[in-house]
Design a binder for these strands. Structure first.
Lengths: 116, 116
DNA sequence: TCCGATTGTTACGGAGGCGTTATAGTCTGA
DNA sequence: TCAGACTATAACGCCTCCGTAACAATCGGA
C-alpha cells in the first residue's frame, strides 16, 4: 500500500507544514537537524554519532554540533555506551517526544485541510 | 476532500523526504528558507518583502537575507516594482522552478513507498 | 602488552544568520 | 510642496554553523 499524492498536493502540504513550523515552532531548524531528530525518534535504537553521520551523508562533527544544539534544548540526550566506551548513544527525551508528536499532528492536520 | 494520513505515516514521510533533501539536495536549508521558496512558487504573485515577512511572522531583514542567499543560488530573483518603486517584487526563476519541482517529485515518491 | 584502528570531540579560521537600529529612496495627502 | 509614512536594505555586534585537521579515549588483535 501507499499514500497517493499529486505533486501539487505534495508541495502545498510541505508549504503549509513548514509555514506552521516557522510561525508557531519558535525554532528555525535546518533540514539536517530535523532529519537527525526524526531518525532518533522513528528508527530503532541504538543511534550513534557515526551511524547518523553515515545515514545522512555528512561528517561526524556535523552530528556532534547538531546534538549539542538539540541537547541544549533537551530534545535529545547523550550517554556513553558501557559495552564499548568509544561509542555515544543518542537517547530520546520526554521533551523531544512531545515535540515530534506535535510535528506529526501538524502534518496530519494540514493534510486534512488540503484542497484536492 | 482531504489527504488521509496517520501520525506515524506523516512522521515517516517527513523523515524520508528531509533525509532525501539532506543526502541529495546539496544545500541545508532552514524551515524559513523553504517556506519562502515554496510561498513564492505556490502562491499567486506579486510577492514583496513586507508581504513575506508578515506571512511568516518574522522581521523584514530576515526576508532580505534569505533572498540574498537564495538569489545567489539563482532560486529566486528581485525586481523593483515600477508602479511603486518602494516595493521589491520577488520573481521565480527557471532554476528555482526546477528545484521546487524536484522537491514535489521527492515527496510523491516517498509517499508512494510509505508502508501502511 | 602494545600498536594500529576506531570513536567522538575540540580547535581553527571563515562564512552566514540573528535582532536591533539606522538609513536611503519613494510615496501621499494636507 | 513638503512633512510624515512606508519600503527595503545596510550596519552593528553577537552567535552558530561550516569543513578540515588534530586530538584523547578506547578497543582489539598480533
Amino acid at each position: 500500500m501507499s499514500v497517493v499524492l499529486r505533486p501539487s498536493e505534495a508541495l502545498n502540504l510541505w508549504h503549509d507544514v513548514t509555514l506552521g513550523l516557522v510561525r508557531d515552532g519558535g525554532h528555525d531548524f535546518s533540514a539536517r537537524q530535523i532529519t537527525i531528530l526524526l531518525t532518533v525518534y522513528l528508527e530503532t535504537p541504538p543511534h550513534t554519532v557515526r551511524g547518523l553521520a553515515a545515514k545522512l551523508g555528512v561528517t561526524k562533527p556535523v552530528i556532534t554540533r547538531a546534538l549539542d544544539t538539540m541537547g541544549a534544548l533537551e530534545l535529545v540526550s547523550r550517554r556513553r555506551d558501557e559495552a564499548d566506551r568509544r561509542n555515544v548513544i543518542i537517547q530520546r527525551t520526554v521533551k523531544g517526544a512531545l515535540f515530534v508528536e506535535k510535528i506529526g499532528d501538524l502534518i496530519v492536520a494540514r493534510a486534512k485541510d488540503l484542497p484536492r
